[in-house]
């Protein structure tokens, strides 16, 4: 027989609150180590690119930001879906906690991309398939957050915003495959593909460290925001007495 206790425990706010608090420390430490190594090696150790020189070093913050902008959205949409289907409050809390983090990484991806595109491509912005779909992703995040704040009742905010999050999922494959489907100024994927990465190890290791490190950073931020969400949702619950005394 399948043991479903883990699923029920995941739905229990006190358990999730305490687990998030414990995990947060680990995630923060891992994020600090990986991002620290990745950015240092990317900026100071990795060789310059044969065509782009040192401008290519923007990749070490641009690619992980872009990757996270999509990962945060996937997390948000999946959590929102779980929340809708199983009426799971914690899942809605995860979705709500993900949105502002995802929005900030989407903004970073667009901004660093622009700073990279200007010297290399010759333009800050072009209405290209990849750039446009990433901009729409930012609109989706902002719409999701605005929609949440327009409801006073949390349950209704959860449901309405979940629908928007799920509908917006269609944008994710469009962002990823845009560079192959349309004649795009943006190049294809260097790492996120089935083929081996188009980069030597000296450039690749710092990038992989940044990708993983940024993901842990997201996980750590999610833990903090999720705990805030749980506190607000459970403010009348008796288990909080124990938590508040402890901290």
């Amino acid at each position: 027989m399948t043991d479903w206790t883990w699923f029920h425990r995941l739905a229990s706010p006190p358990y999730v609150y305490r687990t998030a608090a414990r995990l947060q420390t680990w995630f923060t430490a891992l994020a600090g180590l990986l991002v620290g190594y990745g950015l240092f090696a990317g900026l100071f150790v990795a060789p310059p690119d044969y065509q782009q020189g040192d401008a290519f070093r923007i990749i070490y913050i641009h690619a992980p930001s872009a990757w996270l902008s999509m990962m945060c959205y996937s997390t948000m949409a999946i959590a929102a879906g779980v929340g809708l289907i199983w009426r799971m409050k914690i899942a809605h809390a995860v979705a709500a906690a993900s949105a502002p983090i995802g929005a900030s990484f989407t903004f970073l991806a667009l901004l660093t991309g622009s700073l990279w595109g200007r010297p290399m491509w010759g333009t800050w912005w072009v209405w290209d398939a990849r750039l446009t779909s990433e901009l729409i992703l930012l609109f989706l995040y902002l719409g999701y957050m605005a929609l949440r704040t327009s409801f006073d009742d949390r349950t209704r905010a959860d449901r309405a915003s979940a629908v928007l999050a799920i509908v917006g999922v269609i944008n994710l494959p469009i962002i990823h495959f845009s560079v192959y489907w349309w004649n795009s100024l943006h190049q294809g994927s260097t790492v996120m593909k089935f083929d081996k990465p188009s980069m030597p190890a000296s450039m690749l290791w710092p990038l992989l460290a940044c990708l993983l490190g940024f993901s842990f950073l997201y996980a750590a931020l999610l833990c903090v925001r999720l705990r805030a969400e749980i506190l607000l949702r459970e403010r009348n619950a008796s288990w909080l007495a124990g938590v508040v005394e402890l901290r």
Binding site: D49, Y50, W121, G188
Partner: peptide, 8 residues
């Protein structure tokens, strides 16, 4: 345009 390949 540039491609997705980087090298020293």
């Amino acid at each position: 345009k540039h491609d997705e390949k980087y090298m020293p």
